[in-house]
Design a protein around this nucleic acid. Structure first.
Lengths: 150, 150
DNA sequence: CTGATATCATTTGCATACGAATGAATTTCT
DNA sequence: AGAAATTCATTCGTATGCAAATGATATCAG
């Protein structure tokens, strides 16, 4: 008969009823931050988006800038900046498409290819380090669920 | 006796042996992007970091700028920009700490408090929408695992 | 008390990230 | 063919996000 009072006490425990720390968005942002920090620690002279562009180019070969962007989940404005910086470092080369003169074709230079090959093992270490708090089975679960909301 | 050849064929399926799309970092970035897009769709005039600052202030009351930053996982430089923009909108007020004159104390204005109260239900909708592809049990699992790597 | 340290905040520089507007080239429709 | 719609890329503006340097204030050690 006094259950009501106890319930009230529990509810009042958190005035707002909204716990920022438990929201997906907040945890997602923090997990991403930690990953980027680990990445910067292991691969100091390249950012995750820059590496993603190089790795994808190694995978698919020459593509247009926008196409590459859609492959690595970057809009046109963002991918342009990334490619510009890779070009100024001599890791990618840019040419106009022969037939469709709107398209800017992007490809790896020899230096770019060597760089990808050198960094892939480090990238694998970064993945391992990011997932270190989890067991292999948990890591697989996380990846699967994350993919579904991505 | 021909098993070797088949194995080779499977391995050659992916030349690089490194699948960007399956790396935590990449999926984390994409999931975060989707969440931010959903947020922008529902709460157009405030960003997730800005809302996080307001929600945390509603929770803990007045704090110093740096302290608030550590509560919502932002470094000093980042939190400054966020607070500046909230101040210019009249959602937070800034005062110098009486004793320790280095500290910049941040608190919600009345407008800020009303804004948080108005937005919390929308923020809950955003969480729901972000997790929509998952069952409740899966969502709980994701949140738990994500917290551990965050 | 004073010199060395530490803390809080600010500023600068660089790198994503995205919406919106624009220009150039291509494709589609009629 | 010619007009309308589409696509590719660029530019601008705004907002995180972090490292590094700086200035102001506080604290600590001797």
């Amino acid at each position: 008969m006094t259950g009501e009072r106890n319930l009230r006490l529990v509810e009042d425990d958190t005035p707002e009823g909204y716990r920022l720390q438990e929201q997906v968005g907040f945890v997602l942002r923090k997990a991403h931050q930690r990953h980027v920090a680990i990445f910067a620690d292991r691969i100091g002279d390249l950012t995750p988006p820059q590496f993603a562009a190089l790795a994808k180019l190694a995978d698919v070969g020459e593509t247009s800038q926008n196409q590459l962007g859609s492959l690595i989940a970057m809009d046109a404005a963002t991918v342009k900046g990334v490619i510009d910086r890779l070009k100024s470092r001599g890791l990618v080369a840019l040419t106009r498409h022969d037939v469709d003169k709107r398209r800017l074709m992007v490809s790896l230079t020899e230096d770019g290819r060597r760089t990808v090959e050198r960094l892939v093992p480090l990238a694998e270490d970064i993945t391992t380090e990011t997932l270190r708090p989890l067991s292999p089975k948990e890591a697989a679960t996380l990846l699967r669920l994350l993919s579904r909301i991505a």
